[in-house]
Amino acid sequence: MSDAVLELGAVPAPPRRRELLFGTAFATAGVVMVLVTLVGAYLQARSAAPVATWLADNTIPLTQPNMMMGTLAMSAVTMQWAVWSIDRDDRGHTYMALGVTLLFGAAYLNQAWFLYSQVEMTMGQLEGPLFYATTGTHVAMVIAAMVFIVLMGFRALGGQFSSRQPDGIGAAAVFWHATVASFVLVWIAVYILK
């Protein structure tokens, strides 16, 4: 065996722990503020409208919004399942949990689309722009959260996340949970209170 001494090269700097987590949390705060403001504007416009004119021409069924809320509530559990699994290096369950969360997300989008077709609201109505701005922004949030999960899922498949570095999955979870919590606002303000 050679007597040559192996010299270790410079060790590459490890990725900053929690960088993605903090960045996502900050960005999420800004996004949630968009939705909170839209809900506020919706409520203000509704209270300013003449009595009994708000949504007088439309029927918003409660079945779909309730199911959407239930779907997102279940997805919060599966998202947390993914975080729990990656913290224990259980990759199989991580992928399964992310997949189920995506499935719930797709189910939410399907129900939202169906709900729009049932409500038959037009942009020309007084309620139209704020209704679509509020609910549409939340749909956009869900789509963005799903894209985030897909990206982090691919990175997990590539071996970038583990119990030592679980930030990507955690970051996706932060945004997902904020999306679910935001829907509580939309559900109550737009669909329950009408």
Binding site: G30, M33, V34, L35, T37, L38, L130, Y132
Partner: peptide
């Protein structure tokens, strides 16, 4: 961040 997010919401309403 919070203020920009809030103002952006009104930009969205104006555009929609």
């Amino acid at each position: 961040l919070l203020a920009f997010g809030s103002a952006f919401a009104h930009v969205v309403v104006g555009q929609i």
